[in-house]
Design a binder for these strands. Structure first.
Length: 154
DNA sequence: GCCAACGTTGGC
DNA sequence: GCCAACGTTGGC
């Protein structure tokens, strides 16, 4: 079993939206980056857990944990001409973009801010993908040690 | 709103 | 295959 971190902008999709969704589950569609695509398609497995992370907000940070409930499958928004994430180069018989389904496990008792994660970048969270300079990936791996350490901060 | 860090695109 | 231009991300 592996651990991940998935970014969302709360104005686009929030933990409240996820909590209100049927079975507290949502399809994580719209990812249009090859590195992230590869993780969604090939590496994220049923039962893996993921942090829900808020970006582009007053206090960026981790707000919840989620569980992977469906493994990679073609992202239909890429086929939809009217969708913001439409990609004419992705075809149904040769899909380019993939998505997974995630279920809310639980909200954290408090937001763990990015600034607090950074404060541990020199030791426990050294090498954490999220903290690497210039990181922009919307999906990043989290090691088991990082996962446990961050939950202990809670 | 600024801007650094990337990824992508396309001319050559 | 190189690289400049451009678009996007996301912290601050």
């Amino acid at each position: 079993m592996r651990y991940w971190l998935m970014k969302t902008e709360p104005t686009t999709f929030s933990v409240e939206d996820l909590a209100a969704a049927p079975r507290r589950t949502t399809g994580w569609d719209g990812v249009r980056n090859y590195q992230a695509r590869n993780m969604l398609r090939d590496q994220m497995k049923r039962g893996d857990e993921a942090f829900l992370y808020y970006s582009s907000t007053e206090v960026p940070g981790i707000v919840a944990t989620m569980r992977v409930v469906r493994e990679g499958y073609p992202d239909p928004t890429a086929f939809d001409r009217k969708d913001h994430h439409y990609d004419p180069d992705s075809r149904r018989d040769d899909p380019r973009w993939f998505m997974i389904d995630v279920q809310l496990k639980r909200r954290l008792k408090r937001v763990i801010p990015l600034s607090e994660l950074r404060a541990h970048a020199g030791r426990e969270l050294r090498g954490m993908a999220l903290l690497r300079p210039g990181n922009r990936l919307s999906v990043t791996p989290v090691s088991e040690q990082e996962w446990q350490f961050i939950l202990a901060l809670e």
